[in-house]
Design a protein around this nucleic acid. Structure first.
Length: 557
DNA sequence: GCCGTTTTCGGCCCGACTGTTTTCAGTCG
């Protein structure tokens, strides 16, 4: 069992206890333990073997015993028993935005409805409003919430799909009969949500590929296999396909299977693929076609082929270009690590600077900082900077943009910080005009450097609020305010289209992790992928710049 | 269920908004 699977079961237990109206702190304890396991940088099995499970913060005797049982037997009696009490369909209902565990429990107990589909039917037939405590609006919100869920159902985000695909690819590559392997399809192009995982392999012996694939621990089911491919399901119900080609066909097939369909149709129109056999790199295939190499993230037929024919593709930002992270939380608010631990991880990543941007006072649940605590944090950072050689910690804040567009601190507080990220965490339902005006007000304050997660979207969970993007970009350009690409795989906000547009308006971008945990600094890779899909170069991205250039930008020099 | 330099029991635990009802429960970030 992987760390992720153990964490998933602990979370599922928490869900069931929620429906059963158990002690909230007990539920929190399971969630804490799940999170701790999820974030472990070591295999939980190794810790078990060393007898160190209880050293994980949040894991005590009870959870330790449950983890041991899961590792030894692959299942957990306590969990199986709980599942007898609460059907999984009821747990699925917890994912519906707008209703919580109390409402789910109420509906289940009063009507016996135990699946999202039955719930939708009941809502459409107006049967829910007769339940005491549920009215027309809640019924309406349930319908909307389910529609939202269904909109992307079957797709998973990059944060789930990419690590799983990489693990699968590496597992395949470890077989000597598999001569080459690459992730392909929309996942290779870096789309934020993907329907399946496709892997292209080069091999003469297709049966060896079948055999190897069947052995991968996270394969749940093989649906079909033949000379050309293996198809089936992975954990989380993600479909996969392994496409098998002989080595001489590997590189042109890489282009074919990476897509997009529109890209390859234009690129390979009138080309006999046989003429592309026997090449040794993907770059050689493009060279043979007489055009510049096109990185996978650009292959969407959005003008990249025309540009490549003229050798005019921009030098896209790369992971190694990132010199620092400008949106990071610490344990001063809702982060999991202290400032020094975050700095240490940032240095390991080869960064030169890191901005600590905890939450402001309007977010008490997230431990938002009072003016006094913010000042105290500033002192700690000053002292830390004295000790650091060749590394700078920037004093920052993720300040809340309040309902009217004013900021959560006065000017005198914000002026004393190195960097101000401003974000919306409340009043998501304002209409387009009000929400746009609100953000533009924040931009016009001249106290803000970066607007965090502009649209508030949560992939698969919540649509972003509607905004007049052009007006916002105009204001941001005029006031030297950058927009964030929030790298969290559930956000990737702003999206690639807005990033492209920002560039047209001359608005700079910060690719930030929004890390709440040391390991979250690694999420930046998803933001970089997103930036590449938006055609961005290092010049467009302020945290690829050296510190002095960044500081002049922050000071609006 | 976890935790502990105010320690082995009692604390953990915010506050605004929404929706359903008339004074509060549920949801969310």
């Amino acid at each position: 069992m992987t760390n992720r699977q153990v964490a998933d079961i602990l979370n599922r237990i928490a869900d069931i206890l929620l429906i059963k109206d158990e002690n909230p702190f007990k539920i929190k304890a399971y969630r804490n333990a799940a999170q701790a396991i999820y974030y472990l940088d070591e295999d939980v099995r190794l810790l078990y073997e060393k007898g160190k499970l209880e050293e994980i913060p949040g894991v005590g005797k009870a959870v330790r015993e449950k983890i041991e049982e899961m590792l030894l037997t692959g299942q957990l009696a306590y969990y199986e028993n709980l599942l007898q009490e609460v059907p999984t369909g009821v747990l699925d209902m917890l994912a519906i935005p707008g209703i919580g565990h109390k409402t789910v429990k109420l509906i289940y107990e009063k009507t016996g409805i135990a699946s999202i589909d039955d719930l939708l039917k009941a809502a459409e037939e107006g049967r829910l409003r007769s339940i005491p405590g549920i009215g027309e609006k809640t019924e309406d919100n349930i319908k909307k919430g389910i529609a939202m869920l269904k909109q992307n159902s079957g797709k998973v985000n990059l944060g789930i799909a990419l690590p799983l695909a990489e693990k699968f690819r590496d597992f395949l590559l470890a077989d000597e009969k598999i001569l080459n392997a690459s992730i392909v399809g929309s996942l290779r192009r870096g789309k934020p949500l993907v329907r399946d995982i496709d892997i292209l392999v080069a091999a003469y012996d297709y049966k060896a590929v079948h055999k190897r694939a069947e052995k991968f621990e996270e394969v749940k089911k093989i649906a079909r296999k033949n000379r050309e491919n293996v198809q089936g399901k992975l954990i989380y119900d993600i479909d996969f396909e392994i496409i098998i080609v002989p080595p001489e066909d590997y590189y042109h097939s890489l282009i074919w299977t990476t897509g997009s369909k529109a890209h390859r149709q234009v690129l390979l129109a009138g080309v006999d693929r046989k003429s592309l056999r026997g090449l040794n790199r993907e770059e050689e295939v493009y060279a043979q076609l007489g055009i510049q190499y096109i990185p996978p993230e650009l292959r969407e037929n959005r003008g990249e082929i025309e540009k490549a024919r003229l050798n005019l593709l921009p030098p896209l930002v790369e992971f190694g270009d990132i010199k620092g992270d400008l949106h990071v939380h610490s344990d001063w608010s809702d982060g999991g690590h202290d400032i020094e631990e975050m700095v240490s991880k940032a240095r390991k990543k080869g960064y030169n600077y890191l901005a600590i941007t905890d939450h402001s006072k309007s977010l008490p649940i997230s431990g938002g900082l009072s003016e006094e605590r913010l000042k105290a944090q500033g002192k700690v950072i000053d002292e830390l900077n004295q000790k650091l050689n060749g590394f700078k910690v920037l004093k920052g804040i993720e300040v809340d943009i309040l309902k009217d567009g004013s900021l959560d601190y006065g000017d005198e507080i914000l002026e004393n910080l190195d960097i101000v990220v401003a974000s919306i965490h409340s009043h998501f339902k304002l209409d387009k005009e009000e929400q746009t005006r609100r953000i533009i007000n924040a931009i016009k304050s001249n106290k803000v450097n970066i607007i965090g997660h502009l649209t508030g979207r949560l992939l698969n969970r919540r649509n972003g609020y509607e905004l007049d993007i052009d007006s916002i970009l105009k204001a941001a350009a005029a006031h030297k305010v950058a927009l964030e690409i929030n790298s969290h795989p559930e956000r990737l906000d702003i999206d690639e289209e807005t990033a492209m547009k920002a560039k047209e308006y001359g608005v700079k971008i910060a690719v930030s992790s929004d890390a709440h945990h040391r390991e979250d600094l690694d999420l930046i890779r998803y933001g970089v992928i997103n930036a590449r899909r938006g055609w961005l170069t290092p010049d467009d991205i302020i945290n690829t710049w050296p510190l002095d250039k960044l500081i002049s930008f922050l000071n609006r020099d």
